[in-house]
Design a protein around this nucleic acid. Sequence first.
DNA 1: CAACCTTGCTCAATCGATGAAGCAAGAATT
DNA 2: AATTCTTGCTTCATCGATTGAGCAAGGTTG
Lengths: 341, 341
Amino acid sequence: MNQVKQTKRTTIYDLAELAGTSASAVSAVLSGNWKKRRISSQLAEKIMRIAEEQGYALNMQASLLRREKSHIIGMIVPKYDNRYFGSIVELFEDMARARGLFPIITCTRRDPQLEVEAARTMLSYQVECLIATGATDPDRITEMCAAAGVRSLNLDLPGALAPSVISDNFAGARELTRRILKNSEQRLGKMEPLLFIGGRGSDHNTAERIRGFREAHADLGVAVHEENILACGYAPEKAEKALDERALGGNALPKGMFVNSTISLEGVMRWIRRSDHLDDRSLVLGCFDWDPFVTLLGNGIEMVRQDVPGMLNKVFELIESGANKPVVIQVPPLIPEAQEA
Amino acid sequence: MNQVKQTKRTTIYDLAELAGTSASAVSAVLSGNWKKRRISSQLAEKIMRIAEEQGYALNMQASLLRREKSHIIGMIVPKYDNRYFGSIVELFEDMARARGLFPIITCTRRDPQLEVEAARTMLSYQVECLIATGATDPDRITEMCAAAGVRSLNLDLPGALAPSVISDNFAGARELTRRILKNSEQRLGKMEPLLFIGGRGSDHNTAERIRGFREAHADLGVAVHEENILACGYAPEKAEKALDERALGGNALPKGMFVNSTISLEGVMRWIRRSDHLDDRSLVLGCFDWDPFVTLLGNGIEMVRQDVPGMLNKVFELIESGANKPVVIQVPPLIPEAQEA
DNA sequence: CAACCTTGCTCAATCGATGAAGCAAGAATT
DNA sequence: AATTCTTGCTTCATCGATTGAGCAAGGTTG
């Protein structure tokens, strides 16, 4: 009926007794350096067989306590609700494992308090390196890590105290804006200033994208008014609300929009649907981030796809080089050809 | 005396020396049970002040080695590339933390080998409980956990050896199919058998959904031919390829499709675009899974949204109740009203 | 045949935190 | 005055794996 409750887990001492040898020999065999420890292959095989039979699993806590390196690498990430962060996390895990590291990831929901707690917890787990992805206060995290003698890196959003790998937001936004303006000219016959919507005015990426947005307008000789910049936050509801408010403002909404993330695009699309513009071919959109279904939305929405493999390659290069200086490495994003539906 | 050596991390022994007391007192104070250990509040305050000054961080490995409970809860998850798994992971982390547990999540890419390795690693980290989400071989994982005396649960896909929390795939698929057939009747004037595409014929969810798919056809008196069931796998390319092959088969493709995941829907939509059916209003689609942009795709695609909070509530109920019997708990999915574009 | 390797192992200290047991000094009770 | 109780600490074993040091047995060399 009832399962026999296994009170204690198998340890190397149990295996040693079963094999009629010492814990030391078992450890040497199971950690793979039995040749260096001059254990005979007979004994090694016997130990490995018994370990297998007993379903032995290493106690990492004990192992890590003794060793000097934990081989644990931590990452904090704001959300899992879009393709950008999803692919960062998936590829990060993969690349970490390929390098013999154990990745620990935690989601901090863009909450500064949670970020700090998560960082503290990761330090307790003896991470060797902590990647702060899209952190609201990356420098705080770098300071905490530094105090514990742990390396840290920033990804997606830069910090002033540790190396940062980010997209080239300025160039990406400039090109995206240029494309939206061109599309707008093609569809409406003339170029009109676009609306910038989404993101936080206080974050570096949004600021740089706004700079690129302005620059592209200037390049093409189009003036942008200040009220066309709505850095209203990332959540879909915020974009929706910002558009509502802007629409109430009196003067007509621009026909073209630069949307600062797929998450904000969700809100924008909801607003568009509500206001019966969904099939309005004169609406010209672009989005700084990529999602497979957006391609299929049929409005010929331009997208910028951030180069996640490129960014993570840089991250691991930095880790392996041991660099600690607060450089900012900008990785050019990819801008696929938008396909007209 | 003061911190100059950044090579070693501060331990309770360092703090003890600085405070002129014992490591034991430091441990008692910092672990919060100094009242039970009868430490004076004067000494407690002093120790806490010094710990703060030194930026002390607990060594979790040492702490966990000594304690009997790790408070670590593990989850393996197949992918991060869709909203369903994304929200599972995000909410799981949240609920785990709310219960004082430390969540560790790892992505196994639907790879049985990786699943086993991930499970072994999690056991090494002394997880108290392991949630196998959408595992290809859940029973293998349950066996590994049982051998280590660790609890395990299945989520999304059921196993025979541990409690499982899954969607009511049969009922969800039946209702989804019914809706697609009704839409099909409305748009085409008649009901024709649908195409089922995506998923693995070998997995329980796909099998149950196919059963619901057939049942709904039977309910409405529509016959489905075997060749209308294409359980071609989850990847977008597989769905795309399966449609290509099916289209080459000679007889015309059905106008209505039941797509078994958003990931498969990506492939289906790509195929539709390629074959110039994108604006074909006679195409009637439904998808077992939810994505915000799919709502906006404009084909009036019906969706089933799996009840992630409901499922995770059940998961934590099971954990807290200590149940170990291999029951299967089916959580009804939500079927929002599809909005016609 | 003594000195010296080599092989194949074991012993014991160690990592840092924890907590049961114990101890010294003062307070309270008999 | 002798005993017991209380307070506020310290001591030490422990968790499981790792690893430098060491040891015994057999082989090789001078």
